[in-house]
């Protein structure tokens, strides 16, 4: 299992990367492995407001659907449209396949470091 140290994580298994005032959000390696084959990603639209700690979309595996919980509050400025046709990118490249980008970030959910997240996952697992 891979936990890049430059990212921040949530206990609901999202990751967050910030640069130039824009927050990029995806799901962790552990999350994709638990989900199994991802077959569909339900994305918000550009311009939608998002709230830290609230769902912004969902991701479906063959078996089940899981909410995507937003680590930040702000406004969606970009969605990863590639995921609409190739949701399996979340399995093959979880840290490359970002899901949404958020601008005008105003607040954060509880974030943890890579080391803390790894400890949290190993406890949960």
């Amino acid at each position: 299992m891979n936990y890049p140290t430059e990212l921040a994580y949530t206990k609901s298994h999202e990751w967050l990367k910030e640069a130039d005032g824009v927050a990029e959000i995806g799901i962790s390696d552990f999350a994709q492995s638990e989900l199994g084959d991802v077959v569909f990603v339900n994305l918000p639209e550009v311009g939608d407001p998002v709230t830290a700690g609230e769902p912004f979309g969902d991701v479906e595996s063959v078996k089940a659907v899981s909410d995507l919980v937003c680590p930040v509050s702000g406004e969606v400025c970009e969605i990863n449209e590639e995921l609409l046709d190739s949701p399996e990118l979340l399995n093959s490249d979880p840290y490359g396949a970002w899901i949404i980008r958020v601008k005008d970030v105003t607040g954060y959910d509880e974030m943890i470091t890579a080391a803390e997240y790894e400890a949290f996952v190993s406890e949960e697992g």
Binding site: G36, D37, S61, V62, E88, N91
Partner: peptide
């Protein structure tokens, strides 16, 4: 077993 490591799709 619900699935093996290769996954349901495969």
């Amino acid at each position: 077993p619900i699935q093996y490591p290769s996954g349901i799709v495969s």
